[in-house]
């Protein structure tokens, strides 16, 4: 009985706090959502409201003006995200696994070498030259995948997760049974660390999904544009049309800019809202990992 009152109080307080945080997080998002459905000039005059002051689909019409291109951008972004995430998970987990192995003599040195890259960098120019001129990644999907395949943060995070959920004895006993290092990784370690894979996979996927910077550097062919960059490009073309109108005095129809920015957010976030709950089930407490222990 005592435990359950305690539980009730704990849950009530938790609910309250989580609701406060959620409200803090969602309020701006609702403004953005409503903004995207507001008439551009009305938005400029009246500002952001939770409910559109004057409903308009203008922004979405602009974003969807060339549905085929948008579909292409969506399509190749999904492709890049899928390929990149899978490759990324393999690379990150493999590296994390090696660095986790206590019998690997150079693990600290390699960890340091990996970590070191977050502190020191040679800057953009030599990196760009290497990738574009020597690796010929310009206008290839590889340019959008390769540079974000791994990150020191994710590798070390993976290593830490593995250290805390894969017992040393387990690896030793497998070795006694004659399994080689790769088999231990693929058959024993990977299945245990699903929450870690879900986390790392999620972060990788978000990185690829949001990617626009690499596109801006390496991609000049429109059909290879990432979703984010495609939308950025739509906005840029509107601004250009406005500028041209300013220079030549052509009548430009009322092209929305502010609301398009907001609609872009919605278009980008939309699919992710569906992805997240899918990944989420791996974080829901109760998966017994320790069970393999011993």
């Amino acid at each position: 009985m005592k435990i359950s009152t305690e539980k009730i109080i704990f849950n009530m307080v938790s609910y309250l706090l989580i609701i406060i945080l959620s409200a803090f997080c969602i309020f701006p998002l609702l403004l953005i959502l409503s903004g995207s459905f507001t008439d551009n000039l009305v938005l400029t005059r009246e500002g952001y409201h939770l409910i559109p002051v004057k409903f308009s689909l203008e922004a979405y019409r602009t974003v969807f003006e060339y549905p085929q291109k948008l579909v292409t951008a969506y399509g190749n972004t999904i492709m890049v995200t899928a390929v990149g995430t899978i490759l990324g998970i393999i690379c990150v987990s493999m590296t994390g696994y090696v660095l986790m192995r206590r019998d690997f003599k150079y693990r600290n040195r390699v960890s340091f070498l990996i970590y070191f890259t977050t502190i020191f960098g040679g800057g953009m120019v030599p990196w760009y030259v290497l990738l574009s001129k020597y690796l010929h990644l310009t206008n290839t999907y590889a340019a959008r995948i390769f540079p974000s395949l791994m990150s020191p943060f994710l590798i070390i995070l993976m290593r830490t997760f593995m250290q805390s959920s894969v017992p040393e004895e387990l690896i030793d006993s497998c070795k006694v049974d004659g399994a080689n290092d790769f088999t231990i990784y693929s058959r024993i370690v990977m299945p245990i660390i699903t929450p870690a894979i879900a986390t790392v996979g999620l972060f990788l996927a978000i990185g690829f999904w949001n990617e626009w910077y690499l596109t801006s550097l390496f991609i000049s062919k429109k059909e290879l544009y990432s979703l984010q960059y495609f939308l950025y490009d739509v906005l840029d073309n509107i601004n250009f049309a406005k500028e041209m109108a300013a220079i030549t005095g052509q009548p430009a129809t009322n092209l929305p800019t502010e609301t398009v920015k907001m609609a872009m957010v919605v278009v980008v976030i939309g699919p992710i809202i569906f992805l997240y709950p899918f990944v989420q089930k791996y974080f829901v407490s109760g998966i017994t990992i320790g069970a393999v222990k011993g």
Binding site: C91, T95, I155, D181
Partner: peptide, 24 residues
């Protein structure tokens, strides 16, 4: 085998980080 499993990371960091470090 462990060394081989490190190859992707080594290639990745060599190309992405260490080679461009000459730019310092």
């Amino acid at each position: 085998i462990l060394f081989m499993m490190l190859i992707p990371a080594m290639v990745f960091f060599a190309l992405n980080s260490y080679l461009p470090m000459v730019g310092i």
